[in-house]
Amino acid sequence: MKILPALAISLAAAATAIGAGPPAHQWEIGPIIRGKSYSVNMPLRPQPTSQGWSFEFPSNSKRDGHVHYVSFDPGSLDGAREIRVRYRVDARRGTRFVPQQFPDRPATVSLYFQRAGDNWTAKGRYAMYRWYAPSPTVQNIAPGVHEMTVRLDDPRWGAVVGGIKANDRPREFRDALANADKIGLVFGSTGGRGHGVYATGPARFELLDFRIR
């Protein structure tokens, strides 16, 4: 049963009011589709830290693994205005971050959310169940501390099927927000937002702050 929107908003706001959103054990590294994790050789949960959580990027080569999605269930996002994220990347000098699908492109991290009941086919109504943050908010993965803020009323949010924007399908976009059961970070590249990233040497991602307002 879905939580009533007003209650879900209050729960989501409470969970993300301070620090890196809910605790590490409520985040999932995946996606997990029909029992299979597409984040190859990654643990199911990130490791808790004093400020939030962290994970080590799979390193050396594509066959050693790659990280795709890290998400949690926020309840309904109906009425939420924006997402603010702060994170740190640590890596040995000379380490490169490589998208496993498009290794010639820069590796990126960005935001997404997902409607409950998605079957991951991106066909029919499911073509509007996953939404990815506007292209200008996508960040190349690089060492250092970084921040991103994304408005949830930005009409440039894109559906999983390329070319469909929130302003093209406003009802479906609003329905996805109201019935969300996943929100988080995706690792990949342009043209493959959540299709996975690995590093060529030891590297660590730490979430410092994740707020839904």
Rank of each mutant, 00 (worst) to 15 (best):
Y132E: 14
P43T: 13
P22S: 09
A133N: 10
A107H: 08
D64T: 07
A15L: 10
W157V: 00
E56L: 14
W120E: 10
I83T: 01
V197Y: 00
L4E: 12
D118S: 13
A122I: 01
I183C: 06
A14K: 12
A116H: 13
R84D: 01
I18S: 15
Q114P: 02
T137V: 13
R169I: 02
S10L: 15
A178E: 14
P23W: 08
R130T: 15
P43F: 10
A24W: 08
A178S: 15
G94D: 03
E147S: 12
R125L: 09
V67A: 04
V145L: 09
P22A: 08
I183Q: 04
L152P: 04
F173V: 01
M42S: 12
K62M: 09
F102W: 08
A14E: 12
T190K: 10
A166K: 04
Y112W: 15
V197L: 03
A20E: 08
A107Y: 05
Y129P: 08
I29W: 07
T200C: 03
Y126P: 00
F187S: 07
V40Y: 03
P106Y: 05
G19I: 11
L7N: 01
R63S: 14
D104I: 05
G124K: 11
T200H: 04
Y112L: 14
P103G: 06
G191Y: 01
D118V: 06
P31H: 14
Q47N: 11
M1P: 04
A178Y: 11
S71G: 12
A8R: 04
A133S: 15
G163F: 00
A8E: 03
A91Y: 01
F113R: 06
F72Y: 15
Q100H: 10
A6T: 13
I3F: 09
V89M: 12
I83L: 11
V186H: 03
L208F: 06
V161I: 09
N179Q: 15
P134W: 02
L152H: 07
D153R: 07
I9H: 01
G124F: 08
Y126I: 00
H25Y: 09
P46N: 13
V161M: 09
S37P: 00
Y198G: 09
L152E: 04
V109D: 04
R169H: 07
D90G: 11
R84H: 05
V109Q: 10
T16W: 03
D175T: 08
D73I: 11
D153A: 08
V186Y: 02
A127K: 11
Y38T: 02
R193A: 10
D78F: 13
K165F: 03
M148R: 07
D73S: 15
H66V: 11
M128L: 11
G144R: 02
D181G: 09
